[in-house]
């Protein structure tokens, strides 16, 4: 199941997404949390910490700078631009949701 979370900045989108992701994982579901924000900070609310959240941002910025826009698989995105959050949630920071080719 794919769930999108929208709303005004500061309304609690990120907290809602993170708590929901962690809750789903605790219920035994496999969960991928995708941060589609151009200022990604979902990692903080998921509990991966400030450093790791910052590391993912830096990784993604480097993708933005190199002009090689090659089609990458979901697996590659989750692997390269992702990190493991508590409860088994996999967090990945993606630039734009329509860019990657489904793997």
């Amino acid at each position: 199941m794919k769930i999108a979370v929208v709303g005004k900045g500061g309304s609690g989108k990120t907290t809602t997404s993170a708590v929901l992701a962690r809750g789903l994982a605790r219920h035994g579901h496999r969960v991928v949390a995708l941060d589609c924000d151009t200022n990604p900070n979902l990692g903080l609310s998921l509990g991966v910490g400030d450093r790791e959240t910052q590391r993912l941002v830096t990784l993604r910025e480097q993708v933005g700078e190199s002009d090689t826009e090659h089609a990458v698989s979901w697996a590659e995105i989750l692997d390269t631009y992702g990190t493991d959050a508590p409860d088994g949630v996999r967090l990945s920071v993606i630039t734009r949701i329509e860019n990657p080719e489904p793997g």
Binding site: I3, A4, V5, V6, G7, K8, S11, T16
Partner: peptide, 9 residues
């Protein structure tokens, strides 16, 4: 998307 959550204050 299957479900859209609209967060609102």
């Amino acid at each position: 998307i299957d479900v859209t959550l609209v967060v609102v204050e």
